[in-house]
Design a protein around this nucleic acid. Structure first.
Length: 386
DNA sequence: TCTGGGGTCCTAGGACCC
DNA sequence: TCTGGGGTCCTAGGACCC
């Protein structure tokens, strides 16, 4: 019998702050921006802050209105990554197969572990205990016969929850579940649910596969059809699909000067090329993203015959795309760029290029190495196209 | 109170080839 | 003189997740 645990750290960033700064315990802590920060949103809110109606993705300005006496922090990603690593390492003691989904959650395949560690509810309780004792954090766990259900289960009794969907009870569970709790059905889908009066999984269960695909499209219709029957979603399959690297920046105030926007784009290129080299990736497809002041967002992409070779190469490609797409004179709120369809470059990297290209790549790698060793130095190359 | 940043997957349509 | 069906590669945009 398959058995999975989904483990989800509670209010993760905020909890780490309360752990590192005990004087914050019991207080509403909001990570994501300082009071007065324009254009910042909440990345994490402690449960004390949630009582005021503050939640993730809410603009900081709105959080301030709801919770004026909250403790506001910008956050410290490297610290959160460190703490996450501690927890993930601990998970390995409970399962030979741990699939990390994001910085604060993971699936543990505990199929066949009963003889070694006891029944699932004992394993989940033990895992919670060890995370609390050894890292000071609380984790909510869900247990079920597949990952999709385990994921929903962990959200059922947060924080510090432990929720089990018993084998054989999958269908009953999903049919009685409020549609708002169906993972994968976001804002737009909830609107459609509402329009048709769907309140629980049962209302979707009654529909045929044909009816669902007519309403929601082929792929998502099938996804829903399976979901309300308690069947596994392919979403959580490991090692599938493409890969990409992206970086973007929302400006504190809108920009309309092309030179200023292009300078920001150049900065983003440096971030991307360094991450490309670091990951030993290769890519032929680049894209840009422009968000205007009215929040309308447009993109453009181009797949070339050759892989991106150097920083200047990447910048040339992105600049050309930007100039083609940008509606001159319009105010720009965000500029972004990405490298798509990443391929493994560890074998061929460098060997296909001529000496000049290789020299440039060497220089870029040196700069990357210095930046890694001395992050404060913040070495950047200057724009050379002006 | 206007709406971050980094990702994945899906759809629809066009170009091109057999 | 009008036109089929399938496959591949590519682009733009949208939905969703943490």
């Amino acid at each position: 019998m398959n058995c999975f645990v989904h483990a989800d750290l509670d209010a993760f960033y905020a909890s780490v702050e309360q752990l590192d700064h005990p004087e914050l315990k019991g207080k509403p802590v909001i990570v994501g921006g300082l009071p007065g920060d324009r254009r910042s949103v909440v990345a994490a809110a402690s449960y004390e802050a949630r009582r005021f109606g503050v939640h993730s993705a809410m603009p900081i300005a709105q959080a301030e209105k709801r919770c004026p006496d909250g403790v506001y922090l910008r956050g410290n990603m490297s610290r959160y990554r460190e703490k996450s690593d501690e927890v993930m390492a601990l998970f390995n003691d409970f399962s030979p197969s741990v699939q990390q989904l994001s910085i604060d959650e993971a699936f543990l395949d505990i199929s066949g572990m009963e003889g070694l560690l006891g029944p699932p509810e004992v394993i989940a309780a033990q895992l919670k205990k060890r995370v609390r004792e050894e890292t000071g954090l609380t984790v909510s766990t869900g247990v079920a016969t597949n990952k999709y259900l385990a994921k929903i289960a962990s959200g059922m009794s947060k924080p510090d929850g432990l929720f089990i969907i018993p084998p054989g009870g999958e269908g009953d569970f999903m049919r009685s579940l409020p549609v708002g709790k169906i993972w994968g059905a976001g804002e737009k889908t909830q609107e459609i649910f509402k329009k048709h009066g769907f309140k629980t999984g049962e209302d979707i269960f009654r529909l045929s596969l044909d009816a669902l695909t007519a309403l929601f499209g082929k792929a998502f219709g099938l996804f829903l059809y399976r979901a309300v029957r308690g069947e596994e979603a392919a979403t959580f399959d490991e090692g599938r699909g493409s890969h990409s690297i992206s970086a973007e920046r929302t400006f504190p105030v809108d920009l309309y000067d092309a030179f200023a926007i292009e300078t920001a784009l150049f900065d983003i290129c440096q971030t991307l090329i360094w991450r490309l080299l670091e990951g030993k990736w290769q890519s032929r497809t680049v894209s840009i993203k422009i968000r205007y002041d009215d929040f309308i967002t447009e993109g453009a992409r181009e797949t070339a015959h050759d892989h991106v070779k150097t920083l200047n190469d990447l910048y040339d490609r992105l600049l050309a795309l930007f100039r083609k797409k940008y509606q001159k004179g319009r105010r720009v709120r965000l500029i972004g760029a990405a490298l798509l369809n990443l391929e493994d470059g560890s074998i061929t990297q460098g060997s296909l290029f001529d000496d000049g290209v290789r020299d440039e790549q060497r220089l870029e790698k040196t700069i990357l190495a210095i930046n890694q060793k001395y992050p404060k130095a913040a070495l950047r190359r200057a724009r050379t196209d002006v």
